[in-house]
């Protein structure tokens, strides 16, 4: 099957990530690998059973990291300012954003990231439409969501299908 050929690299990536987490948790003690190796193997088996291996574009993930850090810092500062402000300046609204991402991991990733961006909170995901609660309706949230959606699509190496 063509499928099994493409999934091996991503299984290896998962195994090395779990091994890295184990070495961090155990503080790098050599003897701990007697338990560590079975634990890593079990973790790989469980993760493959729960989430089928998907190809990831690592260069895009490296580009996502600074974008995410900057936006979440901005989001935290924005909401902190509104909380401290004597007049508590908020004007919430609920908007509907039709997702063009594939269902599954890309959509879940997007939904979780939206809640950490400035002024947006993922409320409901239904039939590929994401209802987003926004803190300030004056802001152009849709442009921000579009930009994020494109980055996520590139990370998971999928195209945005026009729905």
């Amino acid at each position: 099957m063509d499928n099994s050929k493409t999934s091996w690299p991503s299984i290896l990536v998962r195994a090395s990530l779990f091994a890295l987490i184990w070495s961090v948790l155990s503080g790098g003690a050599t003897a701990s690998w007697w338990i560590g190796i079975p634990a890593v193997l079990l973790a790989v088996i469980v993760s493959v059973a729960l989430i089928p291996p998907t190809p990831l574009v690592w260069s895009e993930i490296l580009r996502f990291a600074p974008f995410f850090l900057q936006r979440s810092l901005l989001g935290g500062t924005d909401v902190a300012w509104r909380a401290f402000h004597p007049r508590r300046p908020i004007a919430p609204d609920l908007i509907e954003y039709p997702l063009q991402l594939q269902p599954g991991l890309p959509q879940v990733f997007m939904v979780n990231t939206v809640s950490l961006l400035p002024g947006t909170l993922s409320a409901v995901l239904e039939h590929n439409v994401l209802k987003v609660h926004v803190l300030d309706r004056q802001k152009n949230v849709v442009a921000e969501l579009k930009a994020l959606e494109q980055i996520v699509a590139r990370m998971f190496d999928t195209s945005l299908n026009i729905s």
Binding site: I90, H133, L135
Partner: peptide
């Protein structure tokens, strides 16, 4: 700020904004 937002913001949705975003940056 996250806690202040939890107390001052008017409904569950706006309070979630305060908690997730401010605490994420605070912990970071």
């Amino acid at each position: 700020a996250g806690t202040l937002g939890l107390l001052r913001f008017p409904d569950v949705y706006t309070r979630l904004h305060a908690l997730t975003k401010a605490d994420n940056v605070g912990l970071g």
